[in-house]
Computed example of a mutant assay.
Amino acid sequence: MKLTPKQKRFADEYIKSGNATQSAIEAGYSKRTAAVIATENLIKPNIKAYIEKCMAEIASNRVMSYTEAVELLTSIARGEEKETVVVATPVSVEKVEKEADLKTRINALKEILKRYPNNDKLVEQQIRKLSAEADIAEANAREVTDNGTANEIRVIGFERRAEEDERSETS
């Protein structure tokens, strides 16, 4: 069932103001019966559904999408976004448009890279470091002496670790 023009006006006014009685009056209903008609209109399924649909659209337009966020970060990182800065001059105060400073641009780049972890060299280096630490811990565990205490192993560079791995495999 479609809304009548009056019902649509009522719903649109209600969405703007949140006041049902005033919305009914604005839509063209009599002031004398506006409160009752407003209450009835808010109960009608087709009007209620229309209001809910419009409110959902408004809410989704207020929240930035993932794509919009990445596009904004990209424009900041590229220096395309300008910010207004107030600068004092000897005569007066002026507003100047300037691009983001280097620190802000780098932070925008970091935020973008968080969304693409496969391309993040820092994450790659951290993974490599954790792998090396795990290898060292494993080597320490293999070097336990007869009395149950571990010998300290100092691994310097990947070449020495590889040599020790070869020796332990052959014994």
Rank of each mutant, 00 (worst) to 15 (best):
S92D: 12
A35V: 05
Y29V: 02
A137K: 13
S92L: 10
P5T: 06
I156C: 05
I51E: 04
V36I: 14
V36P: 00
T170I: 14
S17W: 06
A139I: 12
M64V: 12
I37H: 01
I47F: 01
D146G: 07
A34Y: 04
L122K: 10
R160C: 01
G79T: 04
A150F: 04
G148M: 00
V91A: 14
D101C: 06
E143F: 12
R105Q: 13
T74I: 03
V123W: 00
N119A: 12
A150I: 12
L73H: 05
A34T: 03
P117M: 01
E80L: 13
A69D: 09
A49N: 14
R161T: 00
N151H: 04
E57I: 15
F158D: 08
I127M: 05
I106Q: 12
I76H: 01
E159F: 05
L73I: 08
R105Y: 03
S75V: 04
S17P: 02
R142P: 00
R154H: 09
Q126D: 09
N119T: 06
A150E: 06
I76D: 00
D101H: 11
Q126K: 13
A162G: 05
F10Y: 07
R128N: 05
N151L: 10
E111F: 08
A27Y: 02
G18D: 07
K8A: 04
L130M: 10
A162H: 05
E13N: 15
L113P: 00
E163G: 04
P90Q: 08
D135N: 11
L113Y: 08
K44M: 10
V93K: 13
A27F: 07
G79C: 07
T145K: 08
E26A: 15
N61L: 13
N46T: 15
N61H: 12
I127Y: 03
A35I: 10
